[in-house]
């Protein structure tokens, strides 16, 4: 084996004194490397063999299982994030569109409402105008009627007052013993009534 031969050559090339003393004392091969286990060359074969085995296993595990799996997971995650971002962008656009549609609908409704209000106002105004005119006409008619009635009443009152005055004057004159001339009394009453 490689280790044994290595061992032997190492022992041969080592310091003569050390080798001689150790051989003389019959120390086990482990003690050869004078304090440094790192320089115990007889263990190199063992370490190298197991290191190579270890590295081959780790490399196998990495290349066959671990690294492709992790790479797959990372790629999948990246893909998911990208598609999610795209979906979010799309939804955001939809939200903006919806908001615009809503605003437009609101503006339309406002315009419609304004139109309806204006129409209603105009209609009411027209009705109002008609009603007012009618009312005005009625009021004017009533006023004229009333004025006529008042004039009649006033005329009637004046006549009555004249008659009463004439009668009263005649009575007063008669009681005082005068015979009254109808014409004179009437003239006098008329003069008084005017003044």
């Amino acid at each position: 084996m490689a280790t044994e031969t290595e061992n032997a050559t190492e022992a041969a090339t080592n310091g003569d004194a050390v080798a001689a003393s150790e051989v003389a004392l019959g120390t086990p091969p482990e003690a050869e490397a004078a304090g440094m286990p790192q320089l115990a060359f007889e263990t190199f074969g063992n370490q190298i063999f197991w290191l190579v085995v270890t590295l081959v296993i780790i490399h196998f595990v990495f290349t066959k299982v671990a690294l492709p799996r992790i790479a797959g997971v990372l790629a999948e995650r990246q893909g998911t994030i990208t598609s999610d971002l795209a979906a979010a962008e799309e939804l955001k656009q939809k939200a903006v569109d919806a908001e615009e549609a809503y605003k437009k609908a609101l503006a339309d409704a406002r315009a419609e409402a304004g139109k309806i209000v204006a129409d209603a106002k105009a209609e009411i105004q027209a009705d109002l105008d008609v009603a007012q005119e009618k009312a005005d006409a009625e009021i004017a008619a009533k006023t004229a009627e009333s004025e006529k009635a008042i004039a009649e009443i006033r005329d009637g009152a004046t006549e009555s007052a004249k008659t009463v005055a004439k009668d009263t004057v005649k009575e007063i004159l008669a009681s005082m013993g005068f015979s009254a001339d109808a014409k004179t009394v009437t003239a006098a009453v008329n003069t008084r009534m005017k003044g």
């Binding site: 084996m1 490689a2 280790t3 091969p29 482990e30 007889e42 263990t43 074969g45 063992n46 370490q47 190298i48 063999f49 197991w50 290191l51 085995v53 270890t54 296993i57 780790i58 595990v61 990495f62 299982v65 671990a66 690294l67 799996r69 992790i70």
Partner: peptide
């Protein structure tokens, strides 16, 4: 006994533990 190249030593043990730890973490 003597340490031959195939002997199972403390090197073997701790390298195997390293392999197990790596497998545990990554696999």
């Amino acid at each position: 006994g003597a340490v031959h190249w195939y002997t199972i030593t403390n090197v073997t043990l701790w390298m195997a533990l390293a392999v197990l730890a790596i497998a545990a973490l990554f696999v």
